[in-house]
């Protein structure tokens, strides 16, 4: 049973535009000209209970607009959006009781006060009973290791500590759904791992449905069961990351260490089955398509021409896959 059902959502924003200059600014006070911007152009998808889905797309593709509609902040121009059988913007209070939202770039904590004060205020805002609140908080404090800085004002926390507190703040009321908008942005490597680990655990142990928007492909690779890719206001592709990789980057990287140094022309001329994309010193990187040529054949061809000292075969980095995908989809 799908928890999130989205059908044919459209949303057009009117963006005021004016030319530079003082006179234009004054004119803009009286009469504004608007450019319509089609942020969503018929978006449909479903997310089932307990799924952890990545929502990807370049900047300005419509990710934030979707998340805002799902959380009830924004009303679409047309289309259907049902979350746990509710229309978010029509039953705002009931809806937000069931969701948690983390915006990586914005804080929901009270800046000047100790973290604990924010949590207590949230307890009152969500009308949580003392027992439930204490249980949930205790669990979160333990898994996210917050006890050392519960009494520290938010403004003095490091970004990593703050993000752990943001996650806690959005989960105190035990939401069934969690929307994460770039939760690892700007974090150092260790904090990223902590946050990632936590998200994974939350999904697994509590069955929380999670929609994750991010530009960090390591997040996606580590976490998401499924990804949806949005561009130009439409869902352009959806499926398992593995399948997308296969479709858009069937090629593998074949890295060889040669016995001697060569210049590009020498290598290119002698190898026909793979494409040389990088050569430095005696290390050469080839791309090959395993459906056309097997690694064994390639190695055979290479060793016939050169002295091969070492070989490494790897997947192209996921960032590259996504970049190529955006390019091919022209978004």
């Amino acid at each position: 049973m799908a928890q999130i059902v989205v059908r044919d959502l459209t949303k057009v924003f009117k963006v005021a535009h004016r030319k530079a200059g003082v006179w234009q600014a004054i004119k803009g006070l009286v009469k504004r000209e608007y450019n319509p911007v089609r942020a969503l152009d018929g978006v449909s998808f479903e997310v089932g209970r307990g799924e952890l889905v990545g929502y990807l797309g370049p900047n300005g593709a419509g990710k934030s607009t979707t998340v805002k509609i799902l959380s009830g902040i924004l009303v679409p121009d047309s289309g259907l959006c049902k979350i746990i059988n509710r229309i978010p913007w029509q039953e705002r209070a009931a809806h937000v009781q069931d969701i948690g939202v983390v915006f990586g770039q914005r804080s929901q904590l009270w800046w000047d006060l100790p973290v604990m004060d924010s949590f207590e205020l949230l307890r009152d805002i969500y009308r949580l009973g003392p027992v439930d609140f204490n249980d949930t908080l205790e669990e979160l404090v333990e898994t996210l290791n917050l006890s050392a800085f519960l009494g520290v004002p938010v403004r003095q926390l490091s970004l990593g500590q703050r993000m752990r507190c943001e996650l806690t703040a959005s989960l105190l009321h035990r939401p069934k759904l969690l929307f994460l908008d770039e939760p690892t942005i700007g974090l150092d490597a260790v904090s990223k791992l902590v946050v990632r680990d936590f998200i994974k655990r939350l999904n697994k142990e509590h069955g929380t449905t999670i929609l994750l928007t991010t530009h960090d492909m390591d997040d996606v690779e580590a976490l998401c069961h499924r990804v949806m890719i949005i561009g130009r206001g439409q869902i352009l592709m959806e499926g398992k990351l593995k399948d997308i990789r296969q479709r858009f980057a069937r090629e593998r990287r074949f890295i060889v260490e040669l016995g001697n140094r060569y210049v590009e022309e020498e290598v290119k001329g002698r190898i026909s089955k793979a494409e040389l994309i990088y050569l430095e010193g005696n290390q050469a990187h080839f791309n090959f398509d395993p459906t056309i040529v097997t690694p064994a054949e390639l190695l055979h061809e290479l060793s016939a021409e050169f002295e091969v000292r070492d070989v490494l075969i790897e997947n192209p980095p996921i960032d590259e896959v996504i970049a190529r995908l955006y390019e091919e989809l022209a978004i």
């Binding site: 805002k68 959380s71 009830g72 902040i73 705002r92 209070a93 009931a94 937000v96 009781q97 969701i99 939202v101 915006f103 914005r106 929901q108 805002i125 969500y126 009308r127």
Partner: peptide, 13 residues
């Protein structure tokens, strides 16, 4: 302007 008003809409009060 900063978008913090969204947070108010995200709370059940």
């Amino acid at each position: 302007r900063t978008g913090d008003f969204d947070r108010i809409l995200l709370r059940p009060r």
